[in-house]
């Protein structure tokens, strides 16, 4: 699995050649391939092609309007690796991704367990918890930006009217508080999706395991630690992987709230990339950063694939119909 994941990088030309080959032997084209083909073509065209384009661009000197002006090899990458702002953004991306994903899981797990249990108003509670999902990230960020306004913001209004603070707090004035607030908003918007996945897992869990545990006199914590958690592992895994990918790539929250400021103190890789590409017109360098980000995620995904295949090896073999092509 891991090997095929690596070779997926060179899939595009292979896939095209392979497609053509099968087309040539069109009498033999198999039903499953025919079914996969349209989606493959779309994904290859819309996502694969720009990746290749990006790889090519990152080795070029590029004018600010995207005109390629000659091959420069690794120069763009060298420039990225010589830039202190890149390292700062990379480091902050790690904190951002780690904190948001960890925070989301820590909150979503108990919330999902509550929502899975039977209690009065569960339907309402589920709707409420899912609610942030229905607003776009951009709009959420716009609303929070307004709510966090120092002197007129309604967050300060609430805290002042409750007597928690006397003076308004300027939430976004310093990088440390601004970044913390952004992480909290990031967690808030990630909870619904994560809770949904976990809730799906919990509700599909066999009840007999619990009943046996109760008979054995297992306490709540032991039940959770030795039954719930192991059974939930695949769901937690997928929640982690998808969240890492989304959060790592997420622009709107930070962009709308602080644009990476003050003093680049909340810049993560995507905001830095956006500025480089569209404000400063350094498209070569920006492409290089895109590829580096792609590399980071690739490594992460491969790790996940390895983990997954190890799990699958333990599970029962897949139940499949034999295809006609064999």
């Amino acid at each position: 699995m891991a090997q095929s994941g690596l070779s997926a990088l060179c899939l595009l030309p292979v896939a095209t050649a392979w497609t053509l080959e099968t087309m040539a032997k069109k009498a033999h084209i198999s039903i499953p391939m025919l079914m996969v083909l349209p989606s493959l073509l779309l994904a290859t065209g819309i996502i694969g092609y720009p990746i290749l384009d990006l790889a090519w661009t990152s080795m070029q000197e590029v004018s600010r309007f995207g005109k390629l002006q000659g091959f420069v090899g690794w120069e763009n990458f060298a420039e990225v690796f010589g830039d202190p702002l890149f390292y700062a953004s990379l480091w902050r991306t790690g904190i951002w991704t780690g904190a948001v994903v960890a925070g989301t899981l820590l909150i979503s797990m108990p919330v999902a367990m509550i929502l899975n249990d039977d209690f009065y108003g569960r339907g309402l509670a589920r709707v409420l918890v899912m609610l942030p999902w229905s607003i776009s990230l951009t709009m959420t960020a716009v609303v929070w930006r307004w709510a966090l306004n120092g002197r007129s913001g309604l967050l300060n209004a609430t805290l002042m009217q409750m007597g928690v603070i006397n003076e308004p707090i300027e939430w976004l004035a310093e990088a440390s508080t601004a970044f913390t607030v952004e992480i909290l908003v990031g967690i808030l918007v990630s909870i619904p999706f994560t809770t949904t996945i976990l809730l799906g897992g919990l509700s599909s869990m066999p009840q007999d395991a619990y009943e046996a545990a109760v008979v054995d006199g297992a306490t709540g914590w032991h039940q959770f630690r030795y039954i719930t958690l192991p059974l939930m592992k695949p769901f937690i895994n997928i929640a982690i992987v998808l969240n890492v990918i989304y959060v790592f790539n997420s622009l709107p929250i930070i962009w709308v709230m602080t644009e990476g400021g003050p003093a680049n103190g909340t810049d993560i890789l995507v905001t830095y990339l956006y500025k480089l590409a569209f404000r400063f017109g350094q498209l070569g360098k920006a492409s290089a950063i895109s590829l580096i980000m792609f590399g980071v995620l690739l490594v992460f995904t491969l790790l996940y694939v390895v983990l997954l295949s190890r799990n699958e090896a333990d599970a029962a073999p897949e139940d499949e119909v034999k295809g006609h092509d064999e």
Binding site: G150, R151, E167, E170, W171, L172, A173, E174, P262, A263
Partner: peptide, 15 residues
């Protein structure tokens, strides 16, 4: 005003 880094042009003018 306190914490100028939280005030953009529009915020200052609003004050």
């Amino acid at each position: 005003q306190p914490s100028p880094t939280n005030y953009n042009r529009e915020d200052v003018f609003n004050l």
